[in-house]
């Protein structure tokens, strides 16, 4: 069966936190594509995939002050990257050079670059690689204690 919607490599659903009025029923997502490359697959010099990420927020009911700002973070939150404010069309394009990452949209007073978000998280999502999980404690390895392997 051919993928009926081939333009996106895959789509990250961005789930509302409900912390910002008018956003609980908003549809938000991130479309992931390989970055442009002269090769068949785009990877960085250290082997991470290089992606284009398109954030989209549809039917937002939020009418208050501030800016929706996009962020990327590693899953341990040790590294955070400011992507910028969503535009008038409530979308934002950026690149990602991490294999496993969080996508976060916050409500910020400022639309200027920052190291960390200050406002409330409005939406959050996880790259598909976030589904990768230790096999310890599961299926064939159900007898393996997770703690032995640091979990």
């Amino acid at each position: 069966m051919v993928d009926p919607d081939p333009p996106a490599y895959y789509r990250i659903p961005l789930v509302p936190t409900g912390r910002v009025p008018g956003t609980a029923r908003t549809v938000a997502f991130g479309d992931v594509l390989f970055a442009s490359s002269p090769f068949g697959v785009a990877v960085t010099a250290d082997g991470n995939y290089s992606y284009e990420l398109q954030l989209t927020v549809e039917r937002s009911g939020y009418k208050g002050p501030g800016h929706f700002v996009g962020w990327l973070a590693t899953s341990d939150l040790k590294q955070v990257k400011w992507l910028g404010p969503l535009g008038d069309d409530n979308s934002l394009s950026s690149t990602v050079e991490w294999n496993k990452f969080l996508v976060i949209v916050t409500l910020e007073e400022s639309d200027q670059p920052a190291n960390r978000w200050q406002g409330p998280v409005v939406f959050r999502g996880l790259s598909r690689s976030g589904l990768m999980h230790t096999m310890a404690g599961h299926g064939p390895f159900s007898r393996e204690p997770c703690a032995t392997f640091g979990y």
Partner: peptide, 27 residues
């Protein structure tokens, strides 16, 4: 030619005889 990957046109083309098709991708 690899015309496109996941619907996005390749930019700097070259004649090929072997090319990668990543998992989940449409080439």
């Amino acid at each position: 030619l690899v015309l496109s990957i996941d619907g996005v046109a390749t930019k700097n083309r070259v004649w090929k005889d072997t090319a990668i098709v990543p998992v989940g991708s449409t080439v």
